[in-house]
């Protein structure tokens, strides 16, 4: 039995300890925002935050989650339904095409901007590695810059 938090709620899982977090989220907790794309840590569609850090949940056995705190895309906005600035920027730029990769892209970006609050294009190139099969990269780049600006504004207020 493993006990951990997901989007501020305490949850328990008593299945096999090698079950990847992704499938626990999707099949058992019915949180389907994190997506399955490759299962080997390559694409980032399954990105969630573990104690605030972006991780690829498809290669994370649930055994490693004991007492950790997980945030998924469903829990990224605040309690009042206010979107995270990265989500706001994603909407403003209208990033999604099929949209399948976007939850992972957004979760990766939130973590990235914590470490690089004023990112250069080079920072983006060196740190953002999630795959988008539809090729929304131009707008992802724009949205990252916009989100960075939104977050700076937020801090000044």
């Amino acid at each position: 039995m493993i006990s951990f938090r997901v989007n501020s709620k305490q949850v328990r899982f008593d299945g096999d300890a090698d079950t990847p977090l992704l499938w626990v989220l999707r099949d058992h907790l019915q949180l389907t925002g994190a997506k399955y794309g490759c299962g080997i840590g390559q694409c980032g569609a399954c990105t969630v935050h573990i104690d605030g850090k972006a991780q690829r949940s498809c290669v994370l056995p649930i055994a490693a989650l004991a007492n950790k705190s997980v945030t998924t895309i469903e829990g990224l906005g605040d309690e009042n339904g206010q979107l995270h600035p990265v989500q706001q920027a994603w909407l403003a730029v209208d990033v999604p095409q099929c949209g399948y990769c976007q939850a992972g892209q957004i979760m990766a970006t939130v973590d990235f901007l914590q470490k690089h609050p004023r990112p250069s294009d080079e920072d983006i190139d060196n740190n953002m590695s999630n795959i988008c099969r539809c090729g929304t990269y131009v707008r992802i780049r724009d949205a990252i810059h916009q989100a960075a600006k939104l977050m700076q504004k937020g801090e000044q207020q």
Partner: peptide, 12 residues
Amino acid sequence: KTVDAHDIVTGV
């Protein structure tokens, strides 16, 4: 804007 964009960025 894309009709479903809000649903996509919120994971629903």
